[in-house]
């Protein structure tokens, strides 16, 4: 991203000063194709920076919320960054090449650029909050499948509105639109 000129009020272009961020953040889709994909509910295939073995970690009986630490505190479960990894891996399994790889990244000040597997697009306008679901004893697997059998998390439960509403109906939770959409 190179500094570029931005339009000023009087029509002339102001050159950006060194270090200034350029660009505009909008809710517009970047391309027409992306808009069509969103319309048809097609999700791009992401490649994760690292093949994270969920199965091994879950197999060692590490609870989900140990790494996804926001899950019982607020809306976002959070995708753990390298800092979280290094809490354990500073000492554990340091001989594995993958661990050495992430240790090197950490030393360079880089974080893992995880791709989101679940989550809603902006124009779903969903304000989902994990914490109350955890409090009401909804199993992680209900919405995320059995991650313990996966390496990289796979999106194998489709979070359609019907999926949410069914569960809300069964558990007599509110199905008012403003429960989730605001």
């Amino acid at each position: 991203m190179q500094p570029t000129a931005v339009p000023s009020n009087d029509g002339s272009d102001i050159a950006l000063l060194p270090g200034q961020v350029s660009g505009v953040f909008t809710t517009a889709r970047p391309t027409f194709g992306a808009a069509v994909d969103d319309f048809l509910n097609r999700r791009p295939v992401y490649e994760q920076p690292l093949e994270f073995p969920h199965n091994i970690h879950v197999g060692k009986e590490i609870a989900c919320e140990v790494c996804h630490e926001g899950v019982d505190k607020g809306p976002k479960a959070g995708i753990p960054g390298l800092r979280t990894c290094m809490i354990c891996h500073e000492a554990i399994a340091t001989d594995r090449p993958r661990i050495q790889q992430i240790t090197a990244m950490r030393d360079k000040g880089l974080d893992l650029a995880w791709q989101r597997v679940y989550g809603f697009s902006n124009d779903d306008h969903v304000r989902f909050n994990h914490a109350p679901h955890i409090r009401n004893k909804v199993e992680c697997a209900t919405c995320h499948g059995n991650v313990g059998e996966q390496t990289i998390a796979q999106r194998n439960v489709e979070h359609t509105m019907g999926f949410c509403v069914n569960c809300h109906n069964e558990r007599k939770a509110s199905i008012d639109c403003l429960t989730c959409h605001f």
């Binding site: 630490e69 926001g70 505190k73 607020g74 809306p75 976002k76 479960a77 959070g78 960054g81 390298l82 800092r83 950490r106 000040g109 880089l110 974080d111 893992l112 650029a113």
Partner: peptide, 12 residues
Amino acid sequence: RFLPDEDIVPGV
């Protein structure tokens, strides 16, 4: 992605 400077609980 750069390593964040602090620990933040997301969404809280």
